[in-house]
Design a protein around this nucleic acid. Sequence first.
DNA 1: GCTGAAACTCATACGGC
DNA 2: GCCGTATGAGTTTCAGC
Lengths: 157, 157
Amino acid sequence: METAKLDDFDRAILRELQRDGRAPVAEIAERVGLSPSPVARRLRMLEASGVIAGYTAQVDEGALGRGFSVFVSVKLDRQVDEALAKFEAAVAAFPEVVDCWLMTGARDYLLRIATAGLPEFEAFLVGRLTRAPGVASIESSIPLRRVKGGAAGLSCR
Amino acid sequence: METAKLDDFDRAILRELQRDGRAPVAEIAERVGLSPSPVARRLRMLEASGVIAGYTAQVDEGALGRGFSVFVSVKLDRQVDEALAKFEAAVAAFPEVVDCWLMTGARDYLLRIATAGLPEFEAFLVGRLTRAPGVASIESSIPLRRVKGGAAGLSCR
DNA sequence: GCTGAAACTCATACGGC
DNA sequence: GCCGTATGAGTTTCAGC
């Protein structure tokens, strides 16, 4: 897969699809100023090249019993490859972990945990996350409210 | 809008749509064990009640020139309503800010900034973010790699 | 509330420019 | 590489259970 060069039409199509991932080709075509055929062809190109990784419904986290988020930074007891791989495998298997980044600096990982509420978060923290392989210490930060985000670049204009 | 109660079929439909937001109704119907008609009706209900906030294409951040992320925590000089509102309005207008949370604790906001690279991040930081209304101090943390996430709950099983 | 069929909209392929 | 048309797939509506 090669990183294809995108022209203004491609970027316009991507913007429309970020705004509405189920938008019909005909509607996208009208908004970007093209007929449906080239839009469909560009779409297949964007999907095949990996620029569009997929499509997803933005489901309200509260409706799925995951309306309460906590940011957790994790430090491992060792930072060798195998230790990272084991911890990451554990994280991948926890549905409560909705986001996870390997960091530079004092903390090794930054995670966002989504559960139904504080009691459920506590149960996950002490029952599962602290027992994940290699975990040395954990710090939790509780957000009050999401100001922006959810879909990458959704509110960009 | 009332928080509707969801049954197992609704949750199955939501799971399918998180996995593939453009999945045809007929395909969803087959996977959840229903005929297309009730799936279409439930879908409209889920959209109308806000359980499905929308649909979006998962666009590769690198392809849009935003492949480099930095986490930034921000402290304001005051925490009264008007100060928060002004800062949040500024944040909403910055396309580089892809995620923003109002936090409890020592720092007021946690942001994820996405730019093309470190020089572009520096330009955004000193030229725009530090000049946003009310900003007192900023701390940056640079991630090495995203381990999990992107679409809420995508890797949940 | 689900099923199945009919009407309609939308997506894909092809010929022409 | 785009436009316009034709064909087939997918969506939506409605009668019946």
